[in-house]
Computed example of a mutant assay.
Amino acid sequence: MSHRTDRRRWFPRLVRLRDLARSLNHLHRKVDHLMATQADLDALVSRIDTAVAGIRQDIADIKAAHPEIDLSGLEERVAGLEGLDAENPTAEPPAEPGE
């Protein structure tokens, strides 16, 4: 077998391997971006949860200090926010292959 024949046989495989490596690198960049985006969303959700809990506590404090004030409408709104949170629970991470 000549050197030229050997090169013709392996060159397409090397090109394909290079293309696969590029595709894999592209996918890694996308995953890194998605993970960063997920971290940003998790932080935002945490801030919203903290704010809703704070509002809920403020309502309880106002009710304790001024029982004559009707805060039922405000309590319903906060309950609606908490209900939205309950409708969208944290997703379970996908199982690793082979588990």
Rank of each mutant, 00 (worst) to 15 (best):
V45R: 12
L41K: 07
A64L: 10
N25Q: 12
D70G: 03
M35A: 06
D32K: 10
Q57N: 14
T50E: 15
M35G: 06
Q57A: 15
L24P: 01
D40N: 12
V31R: 10
K63H: 01
L34N: 07
A65C: 01
V45A: 06
H66I: 04
G73I: 02
Q38R: 14
I59V: 15
D61F: 03
V52S: 05
D32G: 10
K30W: 00
D58I: 02
D42C: 12
L24E: 10
D40H: 07
A53P: 02
T50L: 14
D61C: 05
L41V: 14
R56T: 08
L41R: 10
A65E: 06
I59A: 06
E76N: 10
S23I: 00
D40Q: 12
D49R: 11
R29G: 13
L24I: 08
I48W: 08
L44Y: 01
D42E: 15
D49T: 06
I55D: 00
T50W: 02
E75K: 03
I69V: 11
I69D: 03
D61W: 04
D42I: 13
A64I: 02
S23Q: 15
A53H: 06
L44T: 10
I62M: 12
L44G: 03
D32T: 12
R47K: 14
H28S: 04
A65W: 00
V31F: 04
D61E: 14
I59E: 04
K63S: 06
I48Y: 12
R47Q: 15
D40I: 07
L74Y: 03
L71H: 01
L71R: 01
H26V: 09
D61V: 07
A60D: 14
